[in-house]
């Protein structure tokens, strides 16, 4: 079942997995909201390292810029803009929390069983290209130009909408 060769990739994978899961579990269990966001940023950075391990350098740097940079700072802005007394409120509904734990564990069991039962076999070796960024750019601007343009429209609409929503009502 777990017949994994201890290679360099496996060791690095294990280190990054520890960082990611540690950050995620700390995010769930810490007391203060700002600390939660910081531990989440650690998990995002670990994921970026994992992407480098998977030959996806461009996505790794996008991850650092967007998630570890922009989204974390946006969440901290959200915390600062709304009033927090520092402490995250404790859940008062034990039944609700127990059901959430059971649901998450059931989903994990299902996924784990599916992953273990599947037979993944790679037929070809992965060629990330001479220059990962160049290859992604060529693919993006030749094969996927329509989704790219749709995404740019989506981003524009979303940010205008965000400004319109967060703008103070003139009363």
């Amino acid at each position: 079942m777990f017949n994994v060769n201890i290679t360099g990739e496996y060791v690095v994978f294990f280190i990054f997995a520890t960082i990611i899961i540690g950050g995620a579990v700390l995010m769930i269990s810490l007391e203060k909201v700002v600390h939660m966001v910081i531990s989440m940023a650690a998990a995002f950075l670990g994921l970026a390292g994992m992407y480098v391990l998977l030959d996806a350098e461009f996505v790794a740097f996008v991850q650092v810029l967007i998630y570890a940079g922009a989204v974390s700072i946006l969440m901290i802005f959200g915390i600062m803009m709304t009033k927090h007394n520092g402490e995250a409120a404790e859940p008062v509904k034990p039944l609700h929390e127990t059901l959430a734990v059971i649901g998450a564990l059931c989903l994990f069991g299902l996924l784990f069983y599916a992953i273990r039962a599947s037979d993944f076999q790679s037929t070809a070796a992965f060629h990330p290209g001479e220059d990962n960024t160049l290859a992604i750019g060529e693919l993006l601007f030749t094969g996927y130009i329509v989704p790219f343009e749709l995404l740019s429209i989506l981003l524009t609409v979303a940010f205008i909408g965000a400004i319109a929503l967060a703008k103070k009502e003139a009363e």
């Binding site: 995620a24 769930i28 909201v33 966001v37 969440m75 995250a88 409120a89 994990f108 996924l111 784990f112």
Partner: peptide, 21 residues
Amino acid sequence: LAAILFCIGLYGTLAKRNAII
């Protein structure tokens, strides 16, 4: 690893009361 992350995220989404979390 991705399944573990997804389930932690699912738990946080369902059980946390703070909207930012």
